[in-house]
Amino acid sequence: MPRLLFILPLLLFGAIAAYFAVGLTKDPRLLPSALIDKPAPEFDLPPVHDGQEGFAKANLGGEVKLVNVFASWCVPCKVEHPVLMRFAETNDTPLYGINYKDKKTDAVAWLKQLGDPYKRIGQDLSGRVGIEWGVYGVPETYVVDREGRIRYRHVGPVLPDAMKEKILPLIEELKK
């Protein structure tokens, strides 16, 4: 029997282990955004609350802003919601919402039940704007700077740690 055949399992495992090692250095939650440091895409969304204004690209820029993509059907959104509520109460940075593939009535009921931290909410019923922002799944949160450029993207619920360690320091820095 050729000796190589007996060495083959070891070689295969070596390759797999090397991939594991590379894999360990990457955080699967850290999805890079093609839009980092680029201006936010064009969009103009209708409001969720009747009688209020919608959310469009024109609303970005001027000061640092936080944009959160959420939906009433999304469980992790419920998890991050208290964090966003606290942010809205304690921080003067405006928080904007994109309501992703959601029915208006559902979104309104959800916000009524849990509280509404958003200064403006645009309704993205078709998910079209989500595609342009590069949304993989809800929730996602973006930090947009004074020039209207996307500076940071957070995938998944914003938990208190992420808020404290990533988002708040970045906002402070961008405000300088």
Binding site: M1, R3, F6, I7, L10, G14, A17, F20, L24
Partner: peptide, 25 residues
Amino acid sequence: RGVFILALLVIAIGGSLALYAWRAP
């Protein structure tokens, strides 16, 4: 923890497969 377990994997699996390559023939 991942790094630690990976090291364990490499020693346990790599070691046993090396032994296999050496002794099995």
